[in-house]
Design a protein around this nucleic acid. Sequence first.
RNA 1: GACUCAUUAGCUCAGCUGGUAGAGCAAUUCACUUUUAAUGAAUGGGCCCAUGGUUCGAAUCCAUGAUGAGUCACCA
Length: 549
Amino acid sequence: MIFNNQYIQERIKKSEKLREIGINPYPNKIQKGTPATQFLAENQDLLSIEDEIKIDQSREYTLTGRIKLMRVMGKASFANIEDASGVAQLYFSRDDLVEGFYNDIVKKLFEVGDIIQAKGYPFVTQTGEITLHCIELTLVTKAISPLPEKFHGLQDQELRYRQRYLDMIMNSEVKKTFVMRSRIVSLVRRFFEDHHFLEVETPMMHPIPGGANARPFITHHNALDVERYLRIAPELYLKRLIVGGMEAVFEINRNFRNEGMDHTHNPEFTMIEFYWAYRRYDDLMRITEALFDYLFDTIGLERKLPYGELEIDFTTPFAKVPYLQSITTIGGVAEEIATDKIKAISYLKANGVEVDANLSLGYIQAELFDTFVESKLTNPTYITDFPIDISPLARRSDENPNIAERFELFIAGKEIANGFSELNDPIDQYERFKAQVDTKDATGDDEAMHMDIDYVKALSYGMTPTAGEGIGIDRLVMMLTNQHSIRDVLLFPAMKPELPKEELLPIIDAEMICKKCGHDMIEDLKPAKKGKGMFCIDVNACKERATNK
RNA sequence: GACUCAUUAGCUCAGCUGGUAGAGCAAUUCACUUUUAAUGAAUGGGCCCAUGGUUCGAAUCCAUGAUGAGUCACCA
């Protein structure tokens, strides 16, 4: 049982006692009181009263919040309560409350973790803290689980992620990070709206995964009996909207990639993608700089921000370095090596990187870039002029057919944004998809793109010359809040299941097998539409298994 | 996916070269009417992550596994 812990049992007993004496531990009609910080701000003037007793009984306040600390000293007590705004101190004594309430209820049945409402008037304590002198106390919500230790708080990284609400209660700076995240997302949205972009919502479940190189999550639509892919990028849908006549659109939402997790990767992450008709990739670089200026100015951030050991200078305009040049000047790879596939492969091998010789020069250069350049890009830097063959959706440069009108923005060695002039030649697009499919066949690269005929068809009706860009919101927030793990900017980061084996096994034995064929791979099963039990998603495979039995 | 580290009371942590468990906070009881992690006294609280192995004896040593963190690899 989840509540069989001794501490929880103690608290449940208190909850029952409250009910016995007619106090509902979970009352409904409670109004939120004055925010704690507002209470403190409005009574600052008490501090300057010359009198020995700084008090104003004519002022009346109601505060609501969670008890974080309680100091009981016989017939009087102090408590710190916290609400969304901050912490305020309460004072209550036996003689100021209804007779018996202090001794029998406050001291015995109220405790740290409970949410209470306090009515009273402000005064200043001997140690100079503005405090609410309570004349009435009401229980708002009983907490039957105790809070973690009051001084050290919740330190266990795992518990902090799994029980984020506890992390937020105990570690106030966590809340600050997420308030900042919300602010950034809101400002990004406002920035694009102010620039006359239209916010849209495109499908999260795609019949063909596209718009990026990544392995998708697969799910099943029962009614249509088809596979669906959680989107890896909204790109191809947003560009269909440009074809349809929307000339500036953006979408801020989740993308899903079925890949490894680490401190910069979560299986679901947030991106903004925006598409802008009659613009080119250099317009994107300018508007991205304008976005950073807007964020920094509106939030009031210094242009030089610490990031761990680093200091990052966000002063615009950002540096621009062409792809090949970055490999030679920043990566320190000789040009004759960087432009020769055979030499580049052996150079990589000498540095411990194995690459598939079937790959084209562009892919090999991408390896050179990833190995020797990326981690060195600390200050915001645009890497421009990408090899065309690693840019299947970007427009070819008019001047040089081997490079794409594309850039990526790097900060602190991480890719933050990716933008390009969009390819709008439907026949060229078809050929590029085909080349990707061939790569997939030749190298088994299951992240290469699929052929999306419907998208090519959309292009065939004519898409205006368009520029489009994606910015990783999680990483952006990491940079601006000096957080080094994506999990610290995600409210609920992805975690492995925590149930120990012993608890999982009985469930699997009893429930998690197909009722028809006895198949026991959980990922192949779906719950019965009516009644209990599980059945195979793939009906044909199920029949086959059943007959083989 | 590879390597390194961690996992002991509700929480934060000790626990030596193997001898069956300790503190602070929290809880319970008592004292205390201006405290700031309040204080003082007493009491209760443990499948030492799991499973094997070595051993007379394992929280401690070894193996395997689980979860988390960090480095690297892949990706945004």
